[in-house]
Nucleic acid binder design. Structure first.
Lengths: 137, 137
DNA sequence: ACCTCACACTACCTATTGTAATGTTCGCAA
DNA sequence: TTGCGAACATTACAATAGGTAGTGTGAGGT
């Protein structure tokens, strides 16, 4: 399984995951390989949460292919299959492709408007990349 | 209500709607204001479908704000609140904004790669738009 | 007065996500 | 040796979204 929906009304990891899933991924991405208990302990700092709840969700994340489970003696250790950077890289690439595929020229227009508003420096970056590409040919 | 998820594993209208919803929107976008019965008739050409099923889904689309319902005597006539062009415009703009907001510079890189593969002509369009923007300032 | 047709209301099914009780297994300690 | 406890597995229930459809209601024409 994989991520197959990008939520437009959320932000950050919540765009790809449910709220609990997102918190779990956040923890695993900002720490070492962990057991369920460890993750639960972290989550419990904010508010009480049942061990089994965490386990179920973590196992679902394994099913989805975003976490890897490894048996270490009697406990299972979990870690993301991709680094956060890789994940964002993959997702943004996929989304960008999808967007172009779906909307083509329409997106090119919005791109610049959005780019300008968001961060004019990105416009520079864009232009330089275009120049670089042209030289290649 | 509004559209709040973009499905990466689908294509076309199915990225924004469920399969039946998408077929209904497709019909309404490619024809005049219609009654449920009319839509059902169109759908039924492909395969039998219950009138009430169509009604329920169409009413949900009204709740979501993508269809407008208007009473004409005893029947209700439906039509999209936006043209397909407007809808795609809105969606692509929103998605583009979201993408930039979420990923910033990361997207700028993918954008060009994707653009080149998809359609090098778009690259030209992009460059020209950048030039135009620079002149403005 | 009643029948029909369009619409409303309600409900059930599947999938996803959050939640958690119950069941199982196995090492270690008494 | 027995049995407790920790970790995992299994199962299930709730909510939401979407597809499906039965039953209820109301108004117009006959």
């Amino acid at each position: 399984m994989k991520i197959h929906s990008f939520k437009t009304n959320e932000s950050g990891l919540n765009r790809f995951f449910g709220p609990l899933e997102a918190r779990i991924m956040h923890i695993l991405w900002n720490g070492p390989e962990m057991a369920i208990k460890d993750v639960q302990a972290r989550l419990a700092k904010e508010q009480a949460i049942n061990f089994n709840t965490v386990m179920t969700v973590m196992n679902r994340l394994v099913d989805k292919g975003v976490l890897r489970k490894r048996a270490e003696g009697r406990v299972s250790l979990f870690q993301p299959t991709q680094s956060l950077e890789q994940f964002l890289e993959t997702q943004s690439k996929e989304l960008t492709n999808d967007l172009l595929e779906e909307f083509g020229p329409l997106v090119v227009n919005h791109m610049l408007d959005a780019l300008e508003e968001a961060d004019p420096a990105l416009l520079e970056q864009l232009e330089q990349k275009i120049q670089a590409l042209k030289k290649e040919r």
